[in-house]
Design a protein around this nucleic acid. Structure first.
Lengths: 190, 190
DNA sequence: TTTTTAAGTGAATATTTATTCATTAATTTT
DNA sequence: AAAATTAATGAATAAATATTCACTTAAAAA
């Protein structure tokens, strides 16, 4: 029996991400994905039942990967600001390093491929962030606004800035990143 | 000679926006657009040469509409903060009221339909915003960071918050809007 | 080594979707 | 009122794309 090549599913994912970044979800075909991944069209269907399942499956992989990264180096015992900054930088670095995944996830949200249940599960994954913000509010270190609003403010500035840097072909230096963090912090602090 | 029905092009635009919001750019077909607009498929081709031209044309219409709205009630003579706030609220209200257009524009950016020249023209339309930010920096009212970074920070928080409110099915009240503005202002002020 | 099993292939087929076109209907012009 | 012109229609066709399948190849088990 010939075993399945683990690397191949990954190649397919990579090819898909790269094509979506270049042409959008509306622009990709199974044929192109196969070509980009250096495999035959038929092989795609060994690894994924159909296009929809490929997209959904990639969405789940990306989302889980991102959720895992958000809490790297974070300890509940940290002072609030330190913890917040840790997560802020994790988010920024993730968006920079895996820009393609961010674009893909954004596009999926308004697409016929992703099911409602998949979207629901995504919400749950980010629950831990809520507790962090809540604790900051309890310690009166940050503004007493709606938790989701505060989180969204944080995420929004990062997302948009990374997107812009990418399109304008600019690198986000250490100094710029620190400036960005300062703006975000000044915005939410009490 | 039968005259062309001016309302029809608008119906087609509306139908397209509505479908893109619901299923994404990847999910729409000319047939569906026609059905949603209550016309025959062939009629689409009287008003637009093909799908690509329809999308591009709608993109341009949306973009120009948004640019026009940004400077409503704004006077160069205003104190910086007043002017900034005016534009901030214009942006917020536009995003709320025309959520579909915002989604559409976002999706177009990574799509095979929009040409590079169209993207270039978009940049130019928003030049006036740059001068506003520059003047705020000169008066030392806001942080001396890169202009685009400041603008992006502003736009990012608005976009993401409106998006979130939409998906979570929450209304952005006057109070919430004011909180949001405060966060943005605290973030950028010197 | 031989057999077995599943992966891998890519041309063939099925399906979906864009686009055209012969025809009809609605206006305007004469 | 008749002629002329163009919009509007939707079934027919063309084009693009997803999916299958008969076949080949590679690896594992016997």
């Amino acid at each position: 029996m010939k075993p399945r090549d683990d690397k191949k599913a990954d190649d397919i994912y990579k090819a898909t991400l790269s094509l979506v970044k270049a042409k959008g979800l509306a622009g990709i075909t199974m044929g192109e994905i196969a070509r980009e991944a250096n495999i035959a069209t038929g092989t795609l269907y060994i690894y994924f039942k159909n296009k929809s399942e490929l997209i959904n499956s990639l969405f789940t992989v990306c989302r889980n990967a991102s959720a895992a990264v958000y809490f790297k180096n974070f300890e509940t015992s940290m002072p609030f600001k330190t913890g917040f900054k840790t997560i802020w930088y994790n988010l920024l670095n993730y968006r920079i390093k895996r820009f393609e995944e961010a674009v893909f996830i954004d596009q999926c949200y308004h697409s016929p491929f992703i099911t409602e249940t998949t979207k629901e599960m995504t919400k749950k994954l980010f629950m831990p962030l809520y507790s962090l913000i809540d604790s900051g509010k309890q310690q009166q270190l940050i503004k007493d606004h709606d938790t989701i609003m505060l989180l969204t403010f944080m995420a929004g500035s990062i997302n948009e800035t990374v997107k812009h840097a990418y399109y304008a072909n600019r690198k986000i230096t250490k100094e710029v990143a620190e400036e960005m963090f300062q703006m975000c912090w000044d915005g939410i602090k009490a």
